[in-house]
């Protein structure tokens, strides 16, 4: 199975009050539970990233709940209002409970 690895984009610096765009991408096949293995003919069980949570300095600021209709290698972009310097933590939750995380700092002047 492919290694699961996130990629996030956060501006290193932002002005106070500025609305910045955060982007996050993770490598994941997002098995819907409807596909079959081409070689064995066996049904591939559902395994998706079902939740993405972005927090800033420990406070959850944005959550996305994904269904199987979200594409493989799920991509998400959302805004955030810069008010103080701090660190983002991003968490992806897979069916079965496995979690993948990434974090990035942002300096607000």
């Amino acid at each position: 199975m492919a290694k699961i690895k996130p990629r996030v984009k956060v501006p290193k610096k932002a002005a106070a009050g500025e609305i910045v765009e955060i982007k996050a991408l993770i490598s994941h096949p997002m098995h819907t539970g409807r596909g079959k293995n081409k070689k064995t003919g066996k049904k591939i069980p559902r395994k998706i990233i079902n939740k993405f949570v972005a927090s800033f300095d420990g406070q959850d600021v944005f959550t996305a709940n994904f269904e199987p209709a979200v594409s493989a290698n799920p991509y998400i972009a959302f805004p955030f209002k810069a008010s103080k310097s701090g660190a983002f933590t991003f968490k992806w939750v897979e069916d079965g409970g496995a979690e993948f995380t990434a974090s990035k700092k942002m300096t607000v002047a």
Partner: peptide, 12 residues
């Protein structure tokens, strides 16, 4: 480059 999921593989 960020939206392009091919970059996940190039990063690897």
């Amino acid at each position: 480059d960020f939206e392009n999921p091919g970059m996940l593989v190039a990063d690897h």
